[in-house]
């Protein structure tokens, strides 16, 4: 959802809180309905989605992966429909067919998310190519993790997009892990995203994904390049708060984490950083706290109401 620069911190902070609050609610209620719709929470790394979407017009297209609640909401996706979908109610954004890993709101051009790693980049290239063919001036943004970016088809998609001059941004959300495998488990010591991407003829931008303002600024640049027919890879460094999947918090320091201890993740939390940046820009702390609590209350009110009406069984 495009954010008005005059209210950047207010809007982006509220969106981060909306995503976080709704996911915390899902996590808490996850076992209630025994749906077990395969869940991957984005808590901790919301700033990536919010910062990127903040520069997109409604006309721009976004697509996502297995961890896409944040992408969907930040693009302006309907919150009640997301909750219904995750809990398996047929009023969900995919009619209950998809579940948590399949987010869709075509009214805001959030054109789908799919969990098979590497499946979505070429599909997004297709959507971008179709925009060109249909004479629509927009960009297509596709989100994938650092793990999925290892699939050969991702490189093939970048090459294809570059050769067809598609208006596309591939956002790599790099939370350091594929499940519990770190980069060093999966990559040679000399692995270079930059060399790979630039070698394919695309633009490579890397940014601190925990800082929503920095993501926003990088996304503005990325969108300009993409609109000129140069595909962009926007590589965001993020921190996932929870475990890879399921509703469980990772309270203790899981043994696979290297330096991103719980303490480190808390210190570098994207909401905290956004708050600090907002204060630096002259906004008052009490005002910011007001936004946070109002966004939280508003979200909780919506999701609690939806939850009360959930109807997924006609058997006991």
């Amino acid at each position: 959802m495009q954010i008005d620069m005059n209210n950047f911190f207010e809007e982006s902070i509220k969106m981060i809180v909306k995503i976080r609050t709704s996911e915390e609610f899902i996590a808490e209620k996850f076992f209630d309905e025994k749906i077990f719709s395969f869940l991957h929470l984005t808590i901790g790394q919301e700033a990536g989605a919010v910062g990127v979407m903040s520069v997109l017009s409604n006309n721009d297209i976004a697509m996502g992966n297995h961890r896409s609640h944040g992408h969907y909401l930040a693009k302006g996706g309907d919150l009640p429909k997301m909750i219904y979908e995750v809990f398996g109610d047929q009023r969900g954004c995919c009619g209950g067919f998809g579940g948590s890993m399949h987010m869709l709101d075509r009214s805001v051009n959030f054109n789908g998310s799919t969990p098979i790693l590497g499946s979505i980049p070429p599909l997004a290239v297709g959507q971008a190519f179709a925009s060109k063919e249909n004479g629509i001036k927009n960009v297509t943004v596709v989100f994938l993790g650092d793990g999925a970016a290892e699939e050969g088809v991702f490189m093939e998609s970048v090459n294809l997009a570059a050769s067809k001059k598609c208006n596309i941004i591939f956002v790599i959300e790099d939370n350091r892990y594929s499940v519990a495998s770190s980069h060093s488990d999966r990559k040679s010591e000399r692995y270079s995203h930059q060399k790979l991407i630039e070698g394919l003829g695309a633009i490579y931008i890397r940014e601190n994904g925990q800082n929503v303002k920095k993501v926003h600024d990088a996304a503005i640049l990325a969108r300009e390049y993409a609109l000129s027919g140069k595909p962009v890879i926007l590589h965001l460094d993020l921190l996932r708060r929870h475990g890879h999947s399921g509703p469980m918090q990772e309270n203790d320091n899981a043994d696979y984490r290297i330096e991103d201890t719980l303490e480190y993740r808390n210190e570098n939390d994207c909401l905290l950083i956004a708050k600090k940046e907002a204060i630096k820009s002259g906004l008052s702390e009490s005002k910011i706290e007001e936004w946070i609590s109002s966004a939280r209350e508003e979200t909780l009110e919506i999701v609690s109401k939806v939850k009360e009406t959930i109807d997924v069984r006609d058997i006991s």
């Binding site: 719709s37 047929q90 998809g98 069984r313």
Partner: peptide, 9 residues
Amino acid sequence: CATSPKLVK
């Protein structure tokens, strides 16, 4: 196979 219990009953 869908996700919703009503759909997969």
